[in-house]
Nucleic acid binder design. Structure first.
Length: 553
RNA sequence: GCGCCCGUAGCUCAGCUGGAUAGAGCGCUGCCCUCCGAAGGCAGAGGUCAGGGGUUCGAAUCCCUUCGGGCGCGCCA
């Protein structure tokens, strides 16, 4: 019997006993939590507190009565536990070793599918990373990619049908700015004294792109009219930069189902059609020749212009269309945005409500990142043009460290990323701590006899798992499905990083206290089985975070 | 001014939608390899959970308020 089944049996029995002893009490749900302190057992429930008032007894009396009732009337349930104690109003329980042994057997049997749920039919649209196609990805995208990629993995593990998308903001004036900046670089190839536009994008990343145009077209555009070269340079720049962004996202281990062009939304007529839908619903009005969305009726600060007085839709107008498209094809929509988007939360949620999908949209804001190299702050000034790109960061610290560090903290907590620490192979570095755990297990397995490892995988020796450190590790491994479900429910991927460290910590403790390759074959195989299960769970967690699980380091 | 986030150990941060004596890493002080990877483990010191009210059996967590910090408030994208 698995831990969850044992707890369910316990909960069912207690619910019956409550009904018998306190017939006036409303039906109770017996929920369990892991107590903070290990001496309180594996799980605890606080049912007695909610019954205390109806029973007109102290919570501790109620708890004590329920425990004695359980022992008397449901001995078969009580037998699944080595301890059931009423303490300070709580009922603390400790599961019998056999239950944890069953847990390990299950992990060994299910392997990398352990805890993974079948499809639940719920479609989720998840958007993150989206950057302007006017330059390379930078540190902000690193964080949103890491958070979003991990969240997508966790949601899929829980059975959601996740659709991952990126919006390319390739409409509006910034495309002209990109085209002019690129054209200036192009002309500078022939005449280095040619001035660079004031408002242009000064980064050096445009130089190689301009070179490609020179190589391809030569002087063809030098004397061309702006109406001819501008769309060409803007489109060429966009295409090249988007392709580079896609490469970086791929390198970072994040796969997208859709790269949605904003310009395409305009050209296909969807923007105007979807704005029209908002008008039909009565949520717009005209003023000063422009079309406004009554955003203030849906929680926003004020009403917003969606079609300008000259007839062109605003960026927000396009956002309406894009989100309407997403809401139509998914049951739920999640946006992960950068720190300069706090104002979007109410605006977008209000929009979803106005379109008839109240509560279907969640907006996460990934807070600011400070890049450090040791004690020195790394400048990320875009204006100066000396930007640190995400690729620079990956070159310096590697994908594993970047993915782990970016997802390690709660999304709404500001993050300080120390590049020096991220490459340090030291105890200060949590990535190494977790990966070391995996490599250490791999090393033990290499030292073990191959036939022994195979026998261990069969699980016959599991009844020998009795030590506290062994059972504590088994309990931790069994938490995986619940942890991932928590990540999905609370959109909190950082919990996976915490869990990875907890698993590694419990393993290291077990490793220190219990020698694995002992002479006693049954003992040895039981512990090898625990090693195999731990290795499997660690690999699963690291995979969800997008970090590799090395055999050696 | 308004809106959104945040304030927990010297530092960086957790705290599982209200539970027990507040948790971890780093740093500090001491231990632990004749034995599977010491990139590890154990122990100790360190807290007015920013301050003040409220809700209740019970609050770091929920509500109000004050203070402090970050970001956002264009017919830009």
């Amino acid at each position: 019997m698995l831990p969850d089944d044992a707890l369910a049996a316990f909960a069912g029995a207690v619910a019956d006993l409550v009904a018998a002893r306190y017939p006036d009490a409303p039906a109770v749900t017996v929920a369990f939590e892991a107590p903070r302190r290990p001496e309180f057992g594996d799980f605890a429930t606080n049912v007695a507190f909610s019954l205390a008032k109806v029973a007109r007894r102290s919570p501790n009396d109620v708890a004590a009565n329920l425990v004695s009732d359980l022992r008397e009337h449901a001995p078969n349930v009580a037998a699944l536990f080595t301890a059931i104690d009423a303490v300070a109003g709580f009922i603390n329980v400790r599961l019998a070793p056999v239950v944890w042994q069953t847990q390990i057997a299950t992990i060994l049997r299910e392997g990398t599918n352990f805890g993974r749920r079948a499809s639940n039919g719920t479609r989720i649209s998840l958007e993150f990373g989206s950057a302007n196609p006017t330059g390379p990805l930078v540190v902000v995208q690193g964080r949103t990619l890491s958070i979003g990629g991990t969240l997508a993995n966790a949601l899929r593990y829980c059975g959601y049908d996740v659709f991952v998308e990126w919006i390319i903001n390739d409409a509006g004036s910034q495309m002209d700015t990109l085209g002019r900046s690129l054209y200036a670089r192009y002309l500078q190839h022939f005449d280095p004294s040619h001035p660079f536009p004031e408002e242009g994008y000064p980064g050096e990343y445009l130089l190689p792109i301009a070179q490609r145009i020179v190589a391809r077209d030569g002087e063809r555009w030098r004397d061309a009219d702006e109406s001819v070269w501008l769309p060409y340079f803007a489109t060429f720049g966009r295409d090249t930069l988007v392709a580079e962004q896609q490469e970086t996202a791929k390198r970072f281990g994040v796969a997208y189902d859709l790269w949605q062009s904003e310009r395409e939304l305009h050209e296909s007529g969807k923007v105007l059609a979807d704005i029209e839908r908002l008008r039909e619903l009565g949520h717009t009005y005209e003023s000063e020749n422009a079309l406004f969305f009554r955003a203030s009726e849906f929680g926003d600060d004020k009403d917003r212009v969606i079609i300008r007085s000259d007839g062109r839709p605003t960026y927000y107008g396009a956002d309406i269309a894009y989100h309407y498209e997403k809401l139509k094809r998914a049951n739920r929509v999640i946006d992960i945005l950068g720190p300069d988007h706090h104002g979007y939360i109410n605006r977008l949620k209000g929009l979803a409500e106005a379109l008839g999908y109240p509560g279907a949209l969640d907006v996460l804001i990934a807070q600011q990142i400070t890049l450090m190299r040791g004690t020195e702050q790394v400048s990320m000034s875009k204006r100066a043009g000396n930007i640190i790109t995400l690729d620079d960061i990956l070159d310096e610290v590697g994908v594993d460290a970047a993915r782990f560090f970016f997802v390690m903290l709660a999304t709404d907590s500001p993050l300080t990323f120390d590049l020096k620490l991220a490459v340090e192979a030291s105890s200060e570095n949590p990535v190494y701590y977790v990966q070391y755990g995996h490599a250490r297990i791999a090393s033990v397995l290499r030292n073990a006899d191959a036939a022994d490892v195979e026998a261990a995988r069969g699980g016959d020796a599991l009844p020998r798992l009795q030590e506290a450190a062994e059972l504590a590790l088994a309990r931790r491994l069994g938490e995986l499905p619940r942890v991932v479900q928590g990540v999905a429910d609370h959109l909190a991927p950082h919990r996976l990083a915490k869990y990875a460290r907890d698993v590694a910590s419990d393993f290291h403790q077990f490793y220190t206290e219990c020698k694995i390759l002992v002479d006693d074959a049954a003992q040895r195989r039981a512990r090898l089985a625990l090693c195999l299960a731990t290795k499997s769970v660690l690999a699963q967690v690291l995979d969800l975070i997008g970090v590799s699980a090395p055999e050696t380091m």
